[in-house]
Design a protein around this nucleic acid. Structure first.
Lengths: 145, 145
DNA sequence: CAAAATTAAGATATTTTTATCCGTTATTAA
DNA sequence: TTAATAACGGATAAAAATATCTTAATTTTG
């Protein structure tokens, strides 16, 4: 559904959000460990997120990544659009470049319904709201034994 | 959602199904053109489908690919499972290897609902049923201008 | 001010997916 | 029986995604 890059990005941002109340900065080593993602790849992704304005960062000792108040309210949809692009969320289920109401593929209507539900899910869930669920111990961001 | 290989496979099989009443054999050139897919890659995919028993084939002049009665009733789910594997359909929305009810990711419940709907769609639609929709002129398998 | 810590940037490597090419084998039909 | 046709099989290539490495730039702190 989503690319690895996108999944790592979302997991990382949720982790940052969980510490955001206390203005905690998290360095890349801790971050990658906390969400079970490959460190160097995650570092690259965090760089992108930083450039895109989805996360904040500061260099030097006691530096790291963090989220400001506005960034906390980022919707999953924004992240997915930025990393995986609109094709993933708007594309035809059978891969036709110009599948539409006029010329639908055989799966068009049914697939569209599901795709739209997924988009709603991504639109309604923010990094902040998901971090709440995690902080309350209702969910996790890394693999448990 | 699905790989290109899987999308091409489904489009090709629906096209074959549309001619199956008349026991038409379709050669790879016509097939690739009919569903707007790259010929050599599609040829490879048809080879796989043939090995897997999803399509029939015969060599030589007037040979080609075709579907027998049983193959007409192939569910999309079977094709997706064979080509993309179960991970695509059962995996965690945020990529956790062992996300489950005991240790759910923050998206688990909502994502699962959508994933299950998609699986139902793939389970309920057969190559045959989709070919009907196409033969009745209600849908298409290639890009229209 | 110097050393250490940490992100940023750019280059490189690996893997997977997608795609192509070529020679072989089987089958048909003239 | 031979020439043409078409799938089959294996090797190769190109592109994209994933992942790593190395060096630079910045900031903090002793």
């Amino acid at each position: 559904m989503l690319s690895n890059a996108c999944k790592y990005a979302i997991r990382a941002m949720i982790y940052l959000a969980a510490g955001a109340d206390n203005h905690l900065k998290v360095n890349i080593k801790e971050l990658a460990a906390a969400v079970d993602s490959p460190l160097p790849f995650t570092a690259k992704i965090m760089q992108s997120l930083s450039k895109l304005g989805f996360v904040s960062s500061s260099k030097g000792p006691s530096g790291g990544f963090f989220l400001n108040t506005a960034q906390l309210e980022t919707k999953l949809l924004d992240i997915v659009m930025a990393i995986d692009g609109p094709k993933e969320l708007n594309g035809c289920g059978l891969g036709l470049a110009n599948c539409n109401e006029q010329h639908p593929c055989p799966l068009h209507q049914e697939y569209k319904t599901i795709r739209e539900r997924f988009k709603i899910l991504l639109h309604e869930n923010t990094i902040h709201s998901l971090a709440q669920s995690m902080k309350q111990g209702n969910s996790v961001l890394k693999n448990m034994l």
